[in-house]
């Protein structure tokens, strides 16, 4: 491909090839200071949907080692989103060295707080806001669970904040940029993790609490049984089935040892206070 970029994020080495300079330049800015992989694990390709679409109303299709046939192309001005989606897709479909949970993760005092939830639950926003208050940011997309010892390995990609989360993080003192308008997910703003999160991206830590947050509801806390947590996390994992017995072992160990709570919270500030209180009780 004409333009190339590579980056190491936690355990994963990416290489991204693009027919255009723009998405690569955006990645270089967003990931400045991240290490480079010796040997990349995952490949993403951004290419014109049709040859002439490199120039005429340029439209970015995504492919790689692993891909979904119905992934829709994006306009070139959303090329960074295409690259980020491609990187997520490679990890979600191709990674086998850890159990992957669709969770955000932050660490304090050597212990990890995991937050799982659907898009809009607030798990990315909470992780970002906690990182602005001194927690170490491990990631907002995937938690990498060690298959041997259950520790959580960081994957500190830039956090992708959607719609109201951009303003919430900005008002909490976070710098968000670039911001893409009119994407299939609405407005998306990228928040670059603090330098300490990038410098410590190889340091894993054991999980201490799992939350299933739900934004925009009156405050409520409900403890979940281990079997219910197990079922929810099999659904939140992108590679549980393909890992077979190793995934079963890692997930049963995780839910047996970990307090799991479903929390509802009305806004970001209330969410922070609730997390602080619950963390203090673990």
């Amino acid at each position: 491909m004409r333009h190339r970029f590579s980056v190491q994020v936690g355990a994963v080495g990416f290489r991204i090839g693009s027919a255009w300079r723009g998405p690569i330049a955006a990645l270089e800015r967003l990931y400045v200071g991240y290490p480079k992989p010796d040997v990349p694990d995952m490949t993403v390709r951004l290419f014109p949907e049709k040859p002439w679409r490199r120039f005429a109303r340029p439209s970015v299709a995504i492919s790689g080692d692993f891909w979904l046939p119905d992934a829709a192309p994006l306009p070139l001005r959303q090329g960074l989103l295409a690259a980020e989606m491609g990187m997520n897709l490679q990890v979600a479909l191709g990674w086998r060295r850890h159990l992957l949970l669709h969770c955000s993760a932050v660490e304090r005092d050597g212990r990890v707080l995991l937050m799982s939830g659907a898009s809009g639950s607030g798990k990315s926003t909470l992780a970002t806001m906690l990182a602005l208050r001194g927690w170490r940011f491990l990631g907002d997309e995937f938690a990498f669970v060690d298959l041997e010892d259950g520790r959580i390995h960081p994957f500190p990609r830039a956090s992708s904040l959607k719609n109201e989360a951009v303003a919430a993080v900005r008002s909490a003192g976070g710098a968000v940029g670039p911001v893409l308008e009119g994407t299939p997910k609405g407005m998306i703003g990228y928040w670059r993790p603090p330098e300490i999160a990038i410098a410590r991206m190889t340091e894993a830590a054991p999980p201490a609490m799992l939350l299933f947050p739900r934004f925009g509801r009156p405050e409520n806390v409900e403890r979940l049984a281990a079997s219910e947590t197990f079922m929810l996390l099999t659904q939140a994992s992108t590679n549980y089935v393909s890992l077979g017995e190793a995934g079963f072992g890692a997930l049963t160990r995780l839910v047996q040892d970990l307090p799991a709570l479903a929390i509802d919270y009305p806004d970001g500030e209330a969410g922070m206070m609730l997390v602080d209180r619950l963390w203090g009780e673990t």
Binding site: A226, S227, F230, E245, F248, T252
Partner: peptide, 22 residues
Amino acid sequence: RLTIALDELVAIYHRPSGATHL
């Protein structure tokens, strides 16, 4: 079968099929 008691429910990994059951 790999059998792990979680609470009142038991998680079972069925090796021949690779399927998980509660």
